[in-house]
Design a binder for these strands. Sequence first.
DNA 1: CTAAATGCAAACGGTTTGCAATGCT
DNA 2: AGCATTGCAAACCGTTTGCATTTAG
Lengths: 148, 148
Amino acid sequence: MAYSIEELKEYLKKYNIKPSTIRLKILGFLLENRVHPTADDIYKYLIDSIPTLSRTSVYNALELFTDKGIVKPVSLNEKELRYDIKTDFHGHFKCEICGNIYDFPLQNQVYSEDFLEGFTIKDIHINYYGICKKCNQKIKLNKNKEEY
Amino acid sequence: MAYSIEELKEYLKKYNIKPSTIRLKILGFLLENRVHPTADDIYKYLIDSIPTLSRTSVYNALELFTDKGIVKPVSLNEKELRYDIKTDFHGHFKCEICGNIYDFPLQNQVYSEDFLEGFTIKDIHINYYGICKKCNQKIKLNKNKEEY
DNA sequence: CTAAATGCAAACGGTTTGCAATGCT
DNA sequence: AGCATTGCAAACCGTTTGCATTTAG
């Protein structure tokens, strides 16, 4: 869960990115907290440890990470983009109540290829929306309370 | 392909929406041109026939349509939202070259339900990104030209 | 006459840009 | 010194908001 500076440097090196304090901290945050943060989430998290940090630098780093393929922007019908560290093919579930975003596994299968014959598929985003397990349980509990 | 005013009025009525000139024209546009337009696309299309039209009214109508369930906003990693008239469950393919958005059929099957046990799924967005057939063919043609 | 619908202008908020300041080798 | 990185302030742009005006029943 916790990554050493050396590991983070090594990680960036693999993607041909020069390490800098900001980049290492953003990468560390992304790796250790798989929360699909917005640029602002990252900014707010880092501002304590880098008081001079600017939002621009966060955007710069995220753009670089995106270009180099470390990170993937996802838009979940919100106005802000979120950033997902690249891992296995997976889907996203966004809870409309708590706002949490859950990853869930996907077999590497496409829905129907027939129509897309001749198309080059470079990326697939599978986004589910609804109510997560936890929030469903809370709803159930409140209903029970009301009954007494 | 072409809808009469009466048909459009009937359509709105089903969704409990009072017909107004703007709403009827937007609905007509959405039904007759399945291009997943942005609010601005719609505004630009209508401004000729309604010179006093404001963007606000387009947003108002789209918000109403969304609330009533006529239309579904989709965000395809762009800054603007697009609006999709609700039809069968289908996926979207966005071409990175021409920018066109293609619908493609999906069997109504979910990837892996196991993880999402206890979750309430209200909506599923399947977005593919890449190069469409037409653009692929153009690329091929250009390559052939270069060879001579 | 009343309520709904429309439109204008300003505000909002996430992101981008231009450029100056700073840091690194 | 020279180049990359960072940071500030302003611009940008899609969208929202407040409110005044117009329209429709």
